[in-house]
Design a protein around this nucleic acid. Structure first.
Length: 566
RNA sequence: CGGGGCGUAGCGCAGCCUGGUAGCGCACCUGCCUUGGGCGCAGGGGGUCGCCAGUUCAAAUCUGGCCGCCCCGACCA
């Protein structure tokens, strides 16, 4: 294509509303424009790149036997009510009414619709297994859209769903997807981690996330460089650092002492001269409407995800200050487990075996010394703490590293949640009615593009992997009014096309600097520059990523790029 | 939902405090010039100053309400 005919609105300056690199660069390079908060138009360059991404996704999904479908984005409330998620999704779901006042919503995901198809049509074990997928727009009324294409209210997802007769069939479908996802992200040229994940509101057992490391990410993962353990921080397990001071020995009774104005762990630590690891941090959570006292070591934080799992309630939240005062007769800074009755007490495993620690006295401005878990109160023991920097790996004892990442893919073993609640049944070989088991597997399409920009950019712009760049090579005559350069550039461009390269000819009547800057900005992996060396029968091949230039005989430049790309 | 910031030309911003002619850079159009990293000269077009109401002889500027966007936190299949 000829650049002079294309709409590529590059900007010299960064738009004020963009904060993260991928957002700034996608705007500046003329890939996207914002229509509203979390809603973007994908202009020519973005669409080309997204089409390349979806082509890779399709090829790999087809390769594991996936069948592509196109499903409605507009759903009747009924299917969501059947699965129970009409309520669960709350304000995150876009809802609307038709002219007859019938309730509808915009699809956030497609478990319900897929299961509705399956229950109407699948009758026999002979029809299983099935893998069905779709690449479509999904809608979520995000409380806070942000970071360009990383968190939107309307976005593209590849979603696939597997239906199997039994758990081993599901294992197989899950494993196929795991491998397909690795191939997809490898082919897209991304750096990524596969981590153990929490299955959240989806329900289900096993689940892994594919995470691309980036400072713009909001998900934290714990990674062991030594043995390969990797998990979302929500669910990561780790060995905490040892207490900084030994516990006083002996069978001591709790002893109340005055701590005027000391509310926080740090304040009590400074007041007593004992490290935070000698304190019990008492938190009040509300799970399923009931208050629960949760205890972690003073320097630790609670993982609300782990807590929700232990509490067995989907709706958990910290208690309000009024609830705490009413129930404990003291404010949050002076709470403790001693003397608490009629309330579940959960304690983190890092407190097990500890003796004579410091906790709140349930009286403002007072704390207790010599509090021993298991003797002065009896908790339920669970892993409740969030892994922290400095912790060691449970498997190999080496230090864990925490990384900021963005989720680009997620695979779930759903189990029977949807097939059960929505009444999907098939007959097995002995004629009995059984419920198929399901899996669900998602990929965020725009996030692949964003993550690639986050990973591969410099001060001049982005440098996308060739597989997903909007063009593979741009042919740039330095001086377009020089007839010899113009002619040579045209011939090289034609030869690039003949070599099946996705090529662009920069035939604009611009200064060389403008053409170079624009090509660098939009991130075309290779540039063939036709300039002063043409007299010696040479042109230059510029590698955007490495910024290296090679002088190549004019006729060989397209083949040179062709070989480098593949 | 809590906290903060911003809304003036396509983009980036000044003007607002102290009310009176709407301005700068980039981009855009015309001509000349130039061609290895956003070149130069000359001329030109483009604005309901987010919206509504109020105060005033007079509002981009002061007051009130509303809307939109961004950031931090909460939340997040």
């Amino acid at each position: 294509m000829y650049w002079s005919k294309l709409f590529i609105p590059t900007l010299r300056e960064n738009p004020a509303e963009a904060e993260v690199a991928s957002h700034q660069l996608l705007l500046r390079a003329g890939y996207i424009r914002q229509l509203s908060a979390g809603i973007y138009s994908y202009l020519f360059l973005a669409q080309r790149s997204l089409l390349k991404i979806t082509r890779i996704v399709r090829q790999e999904m087809d390769a594991i036997g996936g069948q592509e479908m196109l499903l409605p984005a507009l759903h009747p409330a009924e299917v969501w009510q059947e699965s129970g998620r009409w309520e669960v999704m709350g304000a995150n779901m876009f809802r609307l009414k038709d002219r007859w006042q019938h309730q509808l919503c915009l699809g956030m995901t497609h478990e319900e619709v897929m299961t509705a198809i399956a229950r109407g049509e699948l009758r026999s074990y002979k029809q299983l297994p099935q893998i069905w997928y779709q690449i479509q727009t999904k809608f979520r009324d995000e409380p806070r859209p942000k970071s360009g294409l990383l968190r939107m209210r309307q976005f593209l997802m590849k979603d696939s769903y597997s239906f199997d007769m039994d758990a081993s069939g599901l294992d197989e479908a899950y494993e196929k997807h795991r491998r397909a996802y690795c191939r997809i992200f490898d082919r897209c040229g991304l750096k990524y981690l596969v981590v153990e994940a929490h299955s959240g509101a989806m329900g289900g057992s096993q689940s892994q996330e594919f995470m691309a490391p980036t400072e713009a990410g909001e998900d934290h993962v714990a990674v062991c460089a030594s043995c390969g353990y990797a998990a979302n921080l929500e669910k990561a397990e780790s060995e905490p650092v040892a207490p900084l001071a030994a516990d006083p020995p002996g069978d001591l009774a709790p002893h109340k002492f005055h701590t005027p104005g000391r509310k926080t762990i740090a304040e009590v630590s400074a007041f007593t001269g004992l490290p935070e690891t000698s304190q019990i941090k008492s938190l009040v959570m509300v799970a399923g409407g009931e208050p629960v006292l949760v205890l972690v070591r003073g320097d630790h934080s609670l993982s609300e995800t782990k807590f929700a799992g232990v509490a067995g309630a989907p709706d958990v939240r910290p208690a309000h200050p009024e609830e705490i005062r009413e129930r404990f007769g003291a404010d949050a800074g002076s709470l403790g487990p001693v003397g608490i009755r009629g309330m579940r007490i959960l304690a983190d495993l890092a407190l097990a075996g500890r003796r004579n620690m410091i906790a709140g006295a349930n009286q403002d401005d007072y704390h207790l010394r010599h509090v021993t878990p298991g003797e002065d109160f009896t908790p339920e023991w669970h892993d409740l703490r969030q892994a922290a920097e400095g912790d060691r790996c449970r498997n190999c004892g080496k230090p864990l590293e925490l990384k900021k990442t963005v989720e680009i893919g997620h695979i779930f073993k759903l189990g029977y949640k949807y097939s059960e609640s929505m009444g999907l049944r098939v007959l097995n070989a002995s004629g009995a009615e059984v419920t198929p088991i399901m899996g669900s597997y998602g990929i965020g399409i725009e996030r692949i593009l964003s993550a690639a920009v986050e990973s591969y950019h410099d001060l001049d712009g982005m440098s996308l992997p060739p597989a997903i760049a909007p063009f593979e090579v741009v042919v740039t005559p330095v001086n377009n009014s020089d007839a010899a350069q113009r002619k040579a550039a045209m011939e090289i461009y034609r030869e690039c096309l003949a070599q099946r390269l996705d090529a662009l000819l920069d035939d604009r009547d611009e200064r060389p600097g403008v053409k170079f800057k624009d090509a660098d900005l939009i991130g075309i992996p290779y540039r063939i520059t036709v300039g002063k060396k043409l007299a010696q029968g040479k042109v230059e091949v510029f590698n955007r990523r490495t910024r290296e230039t090679a002088a190549v005989p004019t006729g060989e430049a397209p083949a040179f790029v062709r070989n480098t790309v593949s």
